Simulated assay, not measured.
Amino acid sequence: MTAPGLIETCHPTALSQHPLRVFTLTGVSPGPVLALIGAVHGDELEGPLTLSALMQYLDPARLCGQLILCPAANAEALAASTRCSPSDGLNLARCFPGDPKGAPTEVLAALIAEHVIRPADALVDLHSGGGPVDCPVFAGYGDAPATRTANLAMARAFGAPVIWRHPAPIASGRTLSEADASGIPAIYIEAGGGTFPTEDILEAYSDGVRRVMAHLGMIDSAPLTATAPLFVAGNGDLDAAIMAPASGLCSCRVSLLDKISAGQPCFDITDIDGRLLHTIAAQADGITMFLRRSRWVSKGDLLMASATPDD
């Protein structure tokens, strides 16, 4: 059973079997418009599970403003449990603002930009490390001058134990870069759940979304958080992180949120017969934010991304 007053709109995409499903809930009182997005990557189920549950108990009589919910942004990738779209191999999180006449994923990005992001006053994009990558629960934001104060306030409100600031300009192609281009405050959330998010992670996402809504004045109250966050900084571009130089069995020597030094050995990659192929060291001092958890890696797979303390 969904919340009363919830309206679904299906927007045709380049793939007839996978329309873009967008849900709106309008409160009885005026207020901001908050967009909530999940499953930009199909192997990240935190967003769909959080937003699906949210739609079960929302009450428009207790809501100020409007929610725009897109729980399955990339339905094709979600159905296949893949990071990228099977139809064209593109990563939706690199395709914004999209192209209505482009490849299927570019068409999808254009639709999300038009019907979900640009109509909003604020955006929360729910991601995770996906199947092969682990990371702490964190809120990330860009610090462009026009939105940095509102972005940081939303990141603080979410209540994640880590807040990651990305210097402007934020990398192109993202939902956040699309929001930034329109002057819309936006944050994204990450965790290490992927296709098997734990109840603790789902509770953190659900409570965090409600805290953002309370911060924006859309609901009266939300769960409290007593955790003082760790602040880190860095570009957060996983395309520029440390990648596997060869295929093989991977052993990780560090843990999430460890402080690492340039030159410190972090990974060993061995052949199937146990022969050492490579030892991969940290390229700079920092704090580990993303780590490979799949023990088999292929050449070019992400091994580690790091940030620096942001005091």
Rank of each mutant, 00 (worst) to 15 (best):
residue 94 R to C: 02
residue 98 G to Q: 06
residue 14 A to H: 05
residue 29 S to H: 14
residue 94 R to M: 00
residue 12 P to Q: 06
residue 169 P to M: 03
residue 286 G to P: 04
residue 194 G to C: 02
residue 165 R to L: 01
residue 143 D to W: 05
residue 52 S to N: 14
residue 288 T to S: 15
residue 292 R to P: 08
residue 292 R to Q: 10
residue 103 A to V: 12
residue 117 I to H: 00
residue 247 S to V: 09
residue 65 G to C: 04
residue 229 P to R: 06
residue 291 L to E: 02
residue 43 D to R: 08
residue 242 I to R: 10
residue 205 Y to T: 07
residue 88 D to A: 09
residue 260 I to H: 03
residue 242 I to Q: 12
residue 281 A to C: 12
residue 116 V to K: 06
residue 82 T to I: 05
residue 288 T to D: 10
residue 203 E to K: 15
residue 33 V to A: 04
residue 265 P to L: 00
residue 120 A to E: 06
residue 250 C to V: 12
residue 303 L to C: 07
residue 87 S to E: 07
residue 170 I to V: 12
residue 255 S to A: 15
residue 67 L to F: 00
residue 138 F to G: 07
residue 231 F to Q: 14
residue 85 S to K: 01
residue 61 A to S: 08
residue 221 S to C: 12
residue 168 A to D: 12
residue 155 A to Y: 01
residue 33 V to G: 06
residue 74 N to G: 14
residue 23 F to L: 14
residue 142 G to I: 03
residue 197 P to I: 01
residue 198 T to R: 05
residue 71 P to W: 03
residue 169 P to V: 06
residue 164 W to M: 13
residue 27 G to W: 00
residue 20 L to P: 05
residue 125 D to P: 10
residue 30 P to Y: 01
residue 286 G to S: 03
residue 93 A to N: 15
residue 169 P to F: 01
residue 194 G to Q: 00
residue 124 V to F: 01
residue 253 R to V: 02
residue 295 R to A: 15
residue 84 C to A: 14
residue 143 D to A: 12
residue 239 D to A: 15
residue 228 A to M: 13
residue 194 G to A: 02
residue 130 G to R: 13
residue 47 G to S: 06
residue 212 V to C: 01
residue 32 P to D: 00
residue 181 A to E: 07
residue 118 R to W: 07
residue 237 D to C: 02
residue 68 I to D: 06
residue 154 M to K: 13
residue 11 H to I: 12
residue 90 L to R: 15
residue 109 A to Q: 11
residue 98 G to Y: 02
residue 246 A to W: 01
residue 137 V to W: 08
residue 148 R to G: 08
residue 72 A to T: 13
